[in-house]
Structures are given as C-alpha cells and as structure tokens.
Design a protein around this nucleic acid. Sequence first.
RNA 1: GGGCGAGUGGCGGAACGGCAGACGCGCCGGCUUUAGGAGCCGGUGUCGCAAGACGUGCGAGUUCGAAUCUCGCCUCGCCCACCA
Length: 846
Amino acid sequence: MTTERFDPRTYEAGWRERWAADDLYRADDDDPRDKHYLLTMYPYPSGDLHIGHWYAATGPDIVARMRRMQGLNVMFPMGFDSFGLPAENAAIDRGVHPVEWTEQNIERMRTQFRSMGCMFDWSREVVTSDPAYYRWTQWLFLQFFKAGLAYRAMAPVDWCPKDQVVLAREQVEGADRHCWRCGTPVIKRDLEQWFLRTTRYADELLDFSKIDWPEPIRLMQTNWVGRSEGAEIDFAVEADGVAPIRVFTTRPDTIFGATFMVLAPEHSAVALLTAEERRAEVEAYVAAARRETEIERMGMERDRSGVFIGGHAINPMTEERIPIWIADYVLPGYGTGAVMGVPAHDDRDYAFAKRYELPVRYVITPRGGEVPTDGAFLPHTQDEVLVDSGAFTGMAAADAIAAITDELAQRGQGAAAISYRLRDWLISRQRYWGPPIPIVYCPEHGAQALPEDQLPVLLPLDVDFAPTGVSPLESHAAFLAASCPVCAGPARRETDTLDTFVDSSWYFLRYTSPHEEAQAWDPVAVMRWLPVDLYTGGAEHAVLHLMYARFFVKALRDMHLLDFDEPFTALRNQGQILGADHHRMSKSRGNVVNPDDLTSRFGSDTVRCFLMFIGPWDQGGPWNPSSIEGVHRFLGRVWSVAQATDGSIRQIPGMPPAQSLAGEPPGSGGASPDEVESVEEGSRALRRATHRAIKEVGEDYAEFHFNTALSKMMELTNALGSARDDGLAGTDAYAEAVEALLLLLAPMAPHISEELWSRRGKPYSIHQQSWPAFDPALVTAEVIELPVQVDGKLRDRLAVAPDTAADEIERLALASERVQAYLQGRTPRKVVHVPGRLVNIVTSAS
RNA sequence: GGGCGAGUGGCGGAACGGCAGACGCGCCGGCUUUAGGAGCCGGUGUCGCAAGACGUGCGAGUUCGAAUCUCGCCUCGCCCACCA
C-alpha cells in the first residue's frame, strides 16, 4: 500500500466545513449527560487574531474536547467584547464609524477563529455592542441602581488626559500611575461620576474557599481589597462646635506616642480648624495638592511636606495638646483621611516629625530592649512591650491593641474598626462607544432611572467623535432630549457610557441563552450551566475583570437574580507569548506574529501542537518558531505509522535488512519460532507503551501540561515506528496503539486525527468517540531497571520484574560485581531500598 | 520599599526528596540525491584517549540520598506602592 504524502492542506479545511455543517460542537441544553461549562476569555475585536489568541484558545479547546470524549456535555462558547475605545479612536483617526469598524473586525476574526479548528459553539456567540446585548447591560445597571449599589457622586477621580476619559482605580497601573490603555500618566480631577458599590462586598471578595483559583490571583485580589484591622479613635479638638476628629490606626497600642495629628489636605474639617493667621498658607497647600498629578505627588514623597494649620487636638490617653497638620501623605480615600502621628513607631510619621521638628516619644520597646537615646526610629519587632504608657506600661504590645481599644470604647472615644483599600468601582466613561447609562435628569426630580420598557437606550449613529473631554453624546440634541419618568416633563439624558468591564461582568451568563429577547438570561438555562466549571484567560485581569465578575455575581445573588456565589469554580491562567524581541506583541513595535502565514505553510494542527509544545502553558515565553519543523515532522510520522500495514516494512537503505515477516501475517506458519517470539515480545512492549501513554496524556491534559502530553505522544509514535520496522504493523497491538494515539491526539490536533481515523475506516467523528481507557495492569513496564547506588553514587543497574521480593533485590544488589568492586571489602552499614525506585548501599559513617 | 514567582546543556524545556537533561530544536557523522533541500539511521551536558571525575545561579544546612526541602545572598520577571 502506498500512502499519500503528508499534506494537511489537502484535508484540514474540508473537515472544518463538515464539523460546522454537522453542528458537531453545539451544546444542547436538554442533553441528559453532566454539563461542563468551559470558558475562555472573549477577545476585544482589534482586527486580527494574533498568535497569542491561538495560544490562549488552544489549551482550553484541548481540555474541552477531552471532557467531551469523556462523556460530559461540554459548552465552550466564544464571543466578542466589542465596546471600547479603539473603535472610537479608529473613527477619529480614519473616519470609519465604530459600528462599521467593529463589524468588519469581528467578521474577520470569526473567520480566523474558525481556521484554528476549535470546538467553539458559535450558535451561542455574544457581541456586547449589539443592542440585543447592551439592552440587558443597561437593564442590569438599573437593577444595581434600584438596589442602592449604583450611585453618582462627586469625587477626585483618575483622568487620562490623552484618552479624555476617567478611569477606574483598577485601570491605573504602575509606579507612574499611568492609563492601562495608552500609558499616559493620569491626573486627578474632581468630577461627578457613577460608581458601583464594590466595597460592600469587600469581605466576601476575600473568601476563596469555594473556588480553585491560582494562588497569585488570589493574592493579588486579597492585596487589592487590602483589609486592615485596627481601631477608629476620636480626638477632641480645640474649636467650639467642631466635632472630634476620627482617625484610623492599625496600632492603637502606640497611642501614648501620638504627638501630632495629620489630616489629608482634602479633609472636610481642615477649613474649620485652620487658624486665621495660617489660612493663606494652608489654602495654598491644599490647592497645590489638588493640582498635582499622582506622579508629582509621588515626587513629593521624599519631601514629606505638610503645613501646620494652627489648630490643636487632645490625645485621649495622654490628654496632651497636639498640633494638627495637613500633609499629602495622608490619603483622603483611605480610613478616615486622618491619622495620629506616632513618629517613634511609624517611619512615615518619623520622617515628617524630623522635617518639622515634632517631638518623638517612645512608647514601645522590644522586650528587654532600651529606647534609643539619639532620637532614631524604632522599627516594629515581634516581641514588644509598652513603656511610658500609663496603666498599660509593661503590657505586651499584642495584648495592648485590644486593651487600649476596649478602654477607649468604654469612654466612648473609639472602637475596633476595619479598613479596606478597595474603592468603589467607577463605571461612567465620557466616551461614545459603550452602553449609554439609562438615566435621565429632571430639573424637578433629579436623576431618575429610565423605565425598563424604554430600553435599550440606543447609541445614535450620527455623532461627532472629536474628543472634547465630555461624551460625544453631549452635543447630540435628539439624544439628549428625554422626559422625566416621574412628571413626564422635559428631562436631559445622561451622556456618559458604561465601562466595558461592565459588559464583561455578565457575558458568561448570556452565553446560556444568547437569543433570549424578553430577559437578560433564561433562569433555567443559567441554573443548568452556571457556575462556569473552568475559566481560562490572562492573569492581567486579576483585579479587573476577574474581580468585577465576582462582585457582579454576588450582588445579583443578593438581588435574587442568581443562586450561586462565584462565577468561576476553577481558573487557569495562560502565560503570555511575547514577541521575538521579548517584548509584548504590539503593532507599534512591529513584533506581532500572524498565525495565518504559519497555518498556510504547516496547517492548523502543526501550529496548535507547536504552541502547546513551547513549554508549560501557564508560562508563555518569547516567540521562537525554530522548532515548529520538529512538531510538523512528528505529525508526519503519525501520518506514516498510522497507515502502515504488515506489508509496509521499510527497508532502511544502507542498513542490514530488518528482521522481517514481510509478506506474511505475523505469527503465521512461515515464521521461525524466534520470529514469533520476537513479535510476541514486541507486542507486549507496545501494549504497555500504549496504556502508559493513555494514562499519562489524560492526566497531563487535565492539568494543562500540554507540553509533556505531546512529548509522551511523540514517544508512543516513536515506539510505533520501531514496532513497524520490527514487523508488527499487522498485529492487534499495533492497531490498538495507532487508534489510541489518534484518540489521544484528537484534542490537540483535531484534523489529522479525524483524517487518519477516517482512513482506517473508523466511524465519523473521532471527536464523538469515547476517551480511551487504560488497563492498570499494563501501565508499568515488564522489567524495570533499578539503579543501585553505593553511598549515593550510581554504580550499577538491576533489571528485575516489578514484583521481585525486596530481600531478593537487596541480595542481587549486594552480589553485583560492580557494587563489590566499590565496596572494596567494606561491610555495608545500611541498605536503603525504596521499592521500585532504587537501592542505596551505605558504607560511610554519617 | 513590600509581596509573589523563576534561575537546569548551544536553545525551548523534562524530572511524587531517589538514574539530572525525557521530548524536541540545533549541531556532528552516515545513507539516499547530479546538487541543494526533504527524508531516514546514529551521535551529542562538561573535562578526559580511557577508567573516571565534575555538573541544576552562589554559599551554608537537613537527609542514606537535594534541581526539588530550610536559611542567607545574587540575578531576572510580575504585581502593589505614602493604605496609617
């Protein structure tokens, strides 16, 4: 039999067409088998799929395909996160309307996605900029509004001067506080904006006990929420009719050392407490702090600047008068925006006190230690006791925290308190390409939610996109005109749109019933499919999408719209494929790798396998296609071994002819007893290789260890090559090995496995076959090689059956000539025998 | 400054505390070919003719045994960054 040359281009597209025509990957709601919802983060339709999209999608596709073969009803949907700034920038730069730009890109990316051969269920596709979708994004906003979880407030917010838009705190990155999208340093502005009350769920967001998520992501979210336990303490002030100032501290045990107080420049009591003669200086400082960008404010860190405002407070424990200062190192949004200054035990307060010559008082020392006499800072240590602290002197600091808090509570001057770094999520955007916020402003009745039957609030198409710092919708008269839901009088429509992260906070719900017109989702379908069993995507969303989606689900649960606590039961992060220059792929760097060139040369299967072979999937790495040929050769070998029959023993040129049974069925009368023997031995070895591969590849896939899974399939293929050369090609063991190999390969290389499966006359489709089972009795080798060490150094190997008795193995090890040579007559002190692993003969004293 | 992670051949990377370098790339040699390429066969951690010795960023430790565990240091990457 002659086999055709291996050329994936002759069959790949044909199989994809057939799978699509047959709806092979459609997930049926009514399927009685156990559901498995496997989700990978949907992309922004930027225009072209790059190699990173392939990398991200292939991993979960492999797992989805294996789970399906293992008998689960798998849903693996895909869609597009299609609202957002790039579409609007394209309109500004090139005059293409965002609608048109987005639709063209989606169409193009759909085609590219299909060429990957992933088992996406396209019948469930979701496009967030489609009015049929954003209508329900708006509806969800209204539910949050009615539940008191969406509110509008004037606040100092981060503003990107380039994109002309506010940003959520999570969208400001890096030491220089730059915009996540364009990298421009942000500035602070006071603006009236819409927020979602994420802080209400701060504590619940810290609970990961119900989900299997990677440790780094859990840590990042935990740090982002930033829970601190401590106390709030009231300091009376010397000003008639002014309420006491409340500070937050994690160290109430240091209160006897509080020698001054610092307020954030933005603190509401500053104006009330400023002495007349200091007013000009204070106002100048407040104005300066307000104007500073974040970076400039960072730059002032070394200066540790501040201004004494002239007022005084009373330390509730020492009853001393302490001066009140303002300084920009105290942040308005954290705790109470006011701190007690304890210079001896807080390095920031210490630097401030040094600069302005404020008194340093030591109230805690390491147990048995002395207080510094040179006025130096005393860092926090494990075992500390209070000194110079009234009735609390001598108490362990750890105990004093509770004791002092109790004392203050009894006096009505304080209480234990918890503070969070998490801020509410700023969701309004002054841009066009997003869902309009469904609110109208009535001169009479203020901000009013739009009645649900008026949704969707459609984006008008005829707008001027030039960025002005306010939404382009602001200048659209027809859009602005609305009527008040309360009095029906003329009202003005909200012109800000919603952050795209609002869209992505619920898309995984919409996939369950994407064509639902009367509601955001069909509750029965959501109950059937959610939560997502396994979610994959980039770790860069740790405190963005992944946190927002958790918040959304918890809030919707409390509104009785959902009945589960976490959206994503398990999470796996893929690594990033960097450009060949080790930088992030970007059009501006010109290091983007286009997969289309590779697939047209090698076919999709080779590209998929190569990507999975680069290294551990969660690690990523720089792009280096040098070994793609090797992976292609591997598929070529699969092609050849899968089509070998007993007549096709290859003569290796220049080699002695293989010991062969050419032309004769194996084991038949013509063969000599030796040949029969060797075929039987070879078959047994091949079966063991097959069953070991079945076990290990399945385990590797489940753990996302695709690189080692592929290496094990390569080993099985190499074993098949040798078996063929040894004349085993017509045997049952050979057929079993080939069929197992194709089934194991099917998730990673869906086309070639389908093609070869079909060529063997097996029933369509390989992707609907059951995952192969392994025989536990066949997963270990018949004979194992046991290393024998003398004093930890390898000296010999024993070839023994796995079930050889321990004392027999030890006897053989000691009897070994090589071991005896190394023992040189010494008596072993000890023999360490780890069954199945090694024997170590110890002679030296330890 | 804090937190997390990672350092293994020329390269990508394998190794439940138990044979370091699986699998692949590259390279070397061979077969085939008019030639090149492709394909196939063999070799390939370092030093050494060999026996052997040495080898997982550096330095200690635990252990019969450490790439793996512990401590200290160095380098790189990511996240956070005045959070009281």
